Structure formats: C-alpha cells, structure tokens
Simulated assay, not measured.
Amino acid sequence: MVSTEGDSTLAIEPVEGKKGRARFVDLGRTFAARVENSVPQLRSEQLELLNPDKNPFFGHAHAQLFIAMRDGRPVGRISAHIDELALEMSAEQGFGPGTGLFGYFDAEDKDVARLLLETAQDWLRSQGMTRSVGPISMSVWEEPGLLVKGQDHAPVIMMGHHPAHYAGWIENAGYIRAKTLYTYDLDISKEFPPLVQRIVKSGERNKRITVRPVRKKDWDAEVAKILGILNDAWSDNWGFVPLTPEEVAYTGIKLKPVIHQELNMIAEVEGKPVAFMLTFPDVNYALAKSGGKLFPTGWWHLLKWARNPQNCDMRVPLMGVLKEYQSSRLASQLAFMMISYIRRNASAKFQSKRAEIGWILDDNQGMVAIADAIDSSINREYAIYAKPLD
C-alpha cells in the first residue's frame, strides 16, 4: 500500500525472513526508547517471540508483519495475525469466528497510523476475517492491550508501555474499546487489613487446606499443574485462548529463571491442586541497567539480579482457582492465603516494598473484590479495541 503526501511518499512493506524480523524488532525498540519511563527489553527474547520456528504460538497461528517507510525511512510497524484457537472460542468471550488480530503497533504520526491499520485490516480481510481486534502482541498471554493510563511510571516485567496518543489514532480509525484491563499497585511492606488476616487464620485452621511453595526441583510437573488449573480457571473469561501442551512446556522453560519458590504458591484441598498464584521479581530493574542487551556486560547484571533480587518490585501476573470452587467461599480464602504468604516472603527475604497485580479484567468481580480487600489501587489501564471489517 502506497500513499502520496505532497512531495513525500509513504509506503507499507511486508516483512519477510530473519533479517526482516530483526528490522521489525529494532524499529520497535527505537519507538519504545522515545516513551517516557520505558525499559529496554531483551532483544533476543523479542526476536524469539516472532520466530515461527521457536515460538509454539505459531503452531496454531500465522502472521504478517509490516513496516511503514517514508522516503526510505522507517516510520512505523504493525502485525496482522490470526490465532486458529481464538477463532474456535465463542464470540461472547471476545474473539470467535472471523476475528483477526493486530499488534506491535507503532507510528510516527496519525497518517502513518491510519495507513498501517488499513494495511493490517486489508490483510485480515484477505484471510477471510470479518473483525479486527487489538492491539494484542502477539498472543493474549504475552502483551495484550494498549497502555492508556500509567505512562508516568516504569512498566514491570511482561507489561507493555505505549505513548498515550496512540489511543486517539486507533479510535480515529473506527475502533471501539472492547475491553479494559487494569493493574493494581500494592504496598507489601505492611500487613493486610484485619478482615483479610482473619480469613487467612480461618483457612489455616482448615485441615483440608494446604498452601505450599512450588517445588522447583519438580518444575516440569509443577508447571503442568499450574497451567492445567489456569486453562480451567480462565476458560470462561473474556479473551481466553487455551494454552497448548507445547506452549505449556515452552512457558515452563521461560519462567524458570525468574522463579523463586517462596514467591509462588499452589493451594491443595485434600491433596488435590486447586489454585495457584505466581509472583515474579521485576526483571526490568536489571534490564534498565543492561540496556536490554546481554553483551558485553548485560548478562552479568541479569545473572546477579536473578540469584538474589533484592529491593525490587514484584508482579503477580497470574492466579487461578478451579471453576468447581469459584462460587464458594473457599476460592477467596485460598487467594488471600496465597497472597498473604507471598507478601510476607517478598518483604522478609527480598526487602520488597511494592507489588503490581494484574492484569485484571474490568468485569472480573472476584479479582476486583480481592484487590480492593487488600487495599491495592489501580495504577495502569490497558484498552483492547475492536472494529468490524465491512
């Protein structure tokens, strides 16, 4: 697609091959560096996420990447992609038949943004799609949504960070907000309110309940338990797409370096795993020092940090309770027990003072109630947009 602007020419080029993906990633890193409080991510990890030979997401998805060029200079990028598993979900859950996705959206100005979005929409139409949803980069389990509030502080691990004006450009292209995702800021240097403490003590008296740290020596088996609970617990949520066995194994490998047993819990009822909560030290603290590169000295910063991440923020990215327990009082009790133990350990062992919980769907009443009960407050807001493709 080509657009003429006076004496200037704006063209969209499809990205192909390893070199093309590297250009796409490096362009995104250039845009990210311009956003206040952004943190450079590991380039090698960003490349791997886009590599069909390495990321198992592409076992059920295909994508086309695009770069916008103005007079030979790169000025924007976007992905258009289709997740076959998302197509199988019900439309009421956000995706469903005919729903294509866009992501990795960056643009120098509104004209570039318009042409990029039109290009992604045309590609999705050519694949038989009737609706476009995004930004989702690339899977809903990776970086869903556009940051619309919260640019005034640095992002934590695995959270996107975008300039506020992108929202207007997407909305001007005819997109309507389909869902809002929140993250919550929590002071973990102090005890939880008395009501929460009473709920925790009540659970500790229940001999049916065991809340234990994950066993890193049995990590593969523990990952299978955790993600099995996740696929069940989240199956009715907006935007849910099940993780495949290949993605479960891949996720386990990726998460292991940031796993500290004291910060990750599995809850059992009569010996059966029924709930989990994962907490990661914020690797962005170390990435800020390494500049997002492993060499020449980035690896040293990351290794030193990973072994003993002192005084850093924490993120709770995932928790879940099996559906059969979700309507019972036990569900919130297990959640409060896990988060209380993790708060205590993060404060005592790692001297952490702050945690971020999320993302949480705006209509997830159970999780919103838990976030409110522990005196956390919304600190970031992400928007996911949708548009019919006429």
Rank of each mutant, 00 (worst) to 15 (best):
D26E: 15
I82G: 01
V283L: 15
P56W: 10
I199G: 05
V241F: 03
D390R: 11
V148A: 02
N311Q: 12
E13W: 11
D122L: 12
S38F: 02
A373R: 13
R29E: 12
T210N: 10
Y341W: 11
R329V: 14
V140T: 12
E143L: 15
G298A: 01
G59C: 03
F102N: 02
D109E: 08
A331K: 10
D313C: 10
P281C: 04
P388R: 01
G145E: 08
L27F: 05
L195C: 00
V321H: 06
M89R: 14
R208V: 00
D185R: 13
S3I: 15
V368G: 03
A22P: 12
A306H: 04
L10A: 02
G228K: 02
E92P: 01
E270I: 01
I342F: 01
N379T: 15
A386S: 15
G298K: 03
S347H: 15
N37P: 00
Q46M: 15
K293Y: 10
E92Q: 04
R215M: 13
L255W: 08
P163L: 10
T130P: 06
I342A: 03
R354D: 07
L255N: 00
I370H: 08
G128A: 13
R212N: 08
Q93S: 09
A369I: 06
E171W: 03
R77F: 05
Q127K: 11
D232C: 10
L334D: 02
R177L: 02
E45A: 13
G17N: 07
N379Y: 09
V15L: 03
R77N: 06
F350W: 06
F102R: 09
L27T: 05
E143H: 12
S38I: 06
I266T: 03
D375E: 14
G145K: 07
R177E: 13
L147P: 04
H161M: 10
N231H: 01
I259L: 11
L87Y: 08
V200T: 08
R343E: 06
Y341R: 14
V248H: 07
L263D: 06
K225W: 03
E246A: 13
S137R: 03
R131N: 10
A113K: 05
N55D: 11
A355H: 07
I67W: 00
L85W: 03
H81E: 02
